[in-house]
Structures are given as structure tokens and as C-alpha cells.
Design a protein around this nucleic acid. Structure first.
Lengths: 229, 229
DNA sequence: GAGTGGTCTAGACCACTCA
DNA sequence: GAGTGGTCTAGACCACTCG
């Protein structure tokens, strides 16, 4: 089964952006060019590009052209925050230790395909601040297992290779239990802030992530400025 | 200047939903019917309905039809949701008990003026689900102490009298301690999800709110779908 | 088989920008 | 004036559901 043309066009653009073949601000091929390149009607190209625009991956200017969007800083708890950047912003030192990185059995949430899994503890000035356990869709990040996640966080890597389409969060307070209590240097039962995050890219579930934080040392912050609606 | 056809179609549907002319779950006119009604091509109707689907206002089932979406309880870290509405959306019963309502000593965060204070426990089907302690700026809500907060939540009242300008959140996991453990029916030390919320209105801090939730029974969820408007 | 939505075509007219 | 995106048309074929 082959992808429908408008999806193929979207993918070709998102792949080009992810691969830095198209840089932020750069002009993309016009609709007319894409028609020729893919051998389709302009309405088909138009739909693909219009959807990319509503997903804020590109910016369209009538009479001028279509451009790769500058990466936007979304506010607050919705933002996909990079733990390493956050720690650096506080003037502290980030280190990471990898506890697992390899294939993983299929999970129903991903539709039963084999997965990748990583388990990493992040430290701020040597103190454990986050234990992240992540299931990743290999189709969207085939080289996931080859990365050095002490140098680039999984989050940073995934944002780069799989442009973000949609995010959902759950936040809970749960009691610490092994092995998480050990990884975070907590006594069993101490409060842990658990953020469960699902991210979608290219119309598929890209990653299912569990982020565990010591309740005493970690705080999620969010800021919201109502402009739309 | 007149609205473009596909926008007119969208508006006619959204108006119908807002006016309860179309109820949740109800089937909407088919694309073919809408073509006749508006005198346009099906592609035009299709675009309108497809956009409503991505906005989650309608749900489309191939081969069956298009239906008004059930109201989604995608409560937000970003949205200011009303706890009573959230509980109602789950089909449960909300009740509230007031533990304090009166003047409060000045707080540095508000610039040293006298304040109002309220402390309320919210119950879902009789189970305590949130303890809210709120400091309010009297300048922005002078009649705060005269409200019956078993009938209208402080949040709802404040949104009404002081249009929201800006919101900031902190989220933490902390151990329960008296009196909060008692209000939430928890053992001391059990995890509590604490949301600290600051809201601004008319360029002034309007309220400083602490929302405590039993970690085991409460979950914050957030959903982010990059699309404008 | 009749009806639905999903997708596509090969044109078209428009308002706009830029050189 | 040449090029861009925004929108629309009047058809079409498909996979699907339901009675």
C-alpha cells in the first residue's frame, strides 16, 4: 500500500526540514514546481502545503511564496522542553547516564510494531532530577539506537528528526517505588512528579515518554498569555 | 465584502452546534446535501467539514456520516478550567464545602494591600478532589466575600468580574501534611499534586491560588495541537 | 445497491508582490 | 507582466457501511 499523494508531498517537505535540507526561513518550491515534480494537480499540492501551514511548519505569504517556519517557542507546560537546556539556563551542569537503550517489545499504543526503548537519568550538578523512560516508533526515528544520549537528549534528537505535530500530557503525583526511587535517590513512598507525554509526528504516534521527577526538587512551570479565543 | 463559501459553511455548522440546533452525537447533513443547500462543489463542502474535523468539532466516519463531536474533557494546563465543569464533563456530581472566607493580611506578592482569602474543598461524587486556597486582590473583585462559592466556583466568579490577562502555573509533587491531608482524606506523606497559579488582570496580580489534589485520584492533562485560530 | 466520506484532476479567476 | 498563493468548479474513482 502506497501513501496518498498529498501525504507523500507533506512527508517530502517535513523530511527536508528535518534533514536541514531546507533551513528555517528558506523558500520552499512553489506549488507549480511541486505539481511538476510529483505529477499531480495543484489542488493536491495546495492541500499538502495548507496543512503544513496550519501545523506551523511552514509560513505562506500570498504573492510571495512558502517558507520554512522559524522554530516557535511554545509557552509553558505544553512546550517540549529540553532538560539539558533548562539546567543550563539555571547556570548548572547537566549530565546524563544511560540505563537502557535497545529494542523493545510491541506496545498496543503504537499498533503492535516493534519499538525502541531508552531509560536515562538526568543529573543537575550531580543530583538526579529526572528519570526518563521512552518508547519510540522506529519508523519515525530509525537511527534512534545509534545516538549518544549523553551528548544529545532524546527529546532534542526526536524534535530534530521528526517534526512535532501534536503533544498530549498527563501529570500525576505518585509515590516513589523501585527502581525509580533508586534512580532518583529517594526513599520509597516519597512524592514523585510523573509527566506522561505522547508526541505525534507525520500522523503517527512518535513517542510515549514517562518523566519521573523528585517532587521535592522539581517544579513544572507554565506561562500563558491568552491571545487566541 | 462577503465571506468565502467554505468559511460560510463552517460558520453555519459551528453556529448550529453553539445554538444546540445540532446536539452532540447527532448526525450532520451529508456533503451532498450541503452542496445543494449552499450551491457549491463538493470539494468546497469537503474542505469546510475536514477543517471542522481537525478542530475536533465534528467527527467523521467514512461510509457513515459526520457527527457533532462529544465535548472533550481535555482539561488543560494551559486553559483555565473550572473544576465544576470538568467534573460535570465526566458525568459526575460536584459539591463544594467552604472552610474559610474572609479578609486576609497583606502579602508581599500583592504589594502590601489587604486581601481576601478563601479555602474550599471540591468533591467529585463525594470524594475530595481538590483543596483550593486562594488569595484575591480586593481591587479587582470587591464583592468576592459576598459570593456563595457552593454555587459558583471562585474561578468562575473571578473570570467573570476580572477578565483574564495572564496566567502562570507551577506544578509540584509534595507530601500531604495537616490540614491538607485531612481535607483530602489522605494519610500524611501521601503524594499531593500542588498547582500554584497566579492570574493577572488589568495589569495587576488578581489572585494567587494553591490547588492541592490527591496524587492518586487526580491527573492534570494537557493537549496541544499546533493550529492557529 | 444506495449512500457516505477520502481523494484526485485539470482547468479557472482572483488579489497580491516583485522586478 | 510573470509568478505566487487562495479559492472554486464539475466532474471522477475508491473503500467503506448499512439495510
Amino acid at each position: 500500500m502506497t501513501e496518498s499523494p498529498y501525504l507523500a508531498i507533506k512527508r517530502s517537505i517535513t523530511d527536508g526540514i528535518a534533514a536541514r535540507h531546507y533551513a528555517p526561513g528558506q523558500v520552499l518550491p512553489s506549488e507549480h514546481e511541486l505539481c511538476r515534480k510529483f505529477g499531480v494537480a495543484r489542488m493536491t499540492v495546495n492541500r499538502a502545503m495548507r496543512e503544513l501551514a496550519t501545523e506551523q511548519l511552514v509560513r505562506r505569504v500570498p504573492g510571495v511564496g512558502t517558507f520554512v517556519a522559524e522554530p516557535v517557542a511554545q509557552s509553558g507546560l505544553v512546550e517540549l522542553r529540553n532538560i539539558a537546556d533548562e539546567i543550563a539556563a539555571r547556570g548548572h551542569t547537566h549530565t546524563a547516564r544511560i540505563f537502557a537503550l535497545g529494542p523493545h517489545a510491541p506496545d498496543a499504543a503504537f499498533g503492535g510494531t516493534p519499538l525502541y526503548h531508552s531509560a536515562i537519568v538526568h543529573y543537575e550538578n550531580g543530583d538526579p532530577i529526572q528519570f526518563e523512560s521512552r518508547l519510540v516508533n522506529p519508523a519515525l526515528a530509525p537511527d534512534y539506537l545509534q545516538q549518544d544520549f549523553t551528548k544529545i537528549t532524546p527529546n532534542e534528537y526526536l524534535v530534530r528528526v521528526a517534526p512535532l505535530q501534536e503533544v498530549a500530557h498527563d501529570v500525576q503525583a505518585i509515590p516513589a517505588a523501585p527502581p525509580i526511587s533508586q534512580h532518583l535517590d529517594l526513599s520509597p513512598g516519597e512524592p514523585v512528579l510523573l509527566v506522561t507525554r505522547r508526541t505525534w509526528s507525520a500522523n503517527a504516534l512518535a513517542a510515549l515518554t514517562h518523566l519521573y521527577h523528585p517532587g521535592s526538587k522539581f517544579m513544572l512551570t507554565g506561562h500563558f498569555n491568552p491571545q487566541s479565543k
